[in-house]
Amino acid sequence: MVYTRRFDFPAWGWRSAFEEMDRMKKDMNRLFGSLTGRYSPASGSGVFPMLNLTEDKDRYYVRAELPGVSPEALEIHVTGKNLSIAGERKISAENAKYHRREREAGKFSRIIGLPGNVDGDKIEARLTDGLLTVIIPKAEAEKPRQIQVK
């Protein structure tokens, strides 16, 4: 039952069985990307920000690394089963001689479909140390229920 649900999301890897294959795929993509000079998104949807989604009995957890993004610059919405995260990362230009410039600024927006129904009223989002955590309680009907055997 768990597996059929997960097969609805073919692009999603899950750590236990396919981690190693994902890593190989990533390495191959990186290799071919560098040969052809064309960037190919290695994992996921290729849309910023990259997200990790986990669940426990009662909640889903969506996490993203957003260093340097202030909470005011983030907009998070939930519509039905879809969670949207949008925002902007600003980097002020310094009046100095740059030696390296690897950090990037810009706008982003991404929508992710959650695997089950959620309780939209009790969603909590936290941004600490550049890590965004959105905690989404599952709808009552989605929670596993233990059946007492008499």
Partner: peptide, 14 residues
């Protein structure tokens, strides 16, 4: 580590 002990991965992009 910041994940709860009984969290299970559904999607791992990073």
């Amino acid at each position: 580590p910041f994940e709860g002990a009984d969290e299970q991965d559904i999607l791992v992009e990073y």
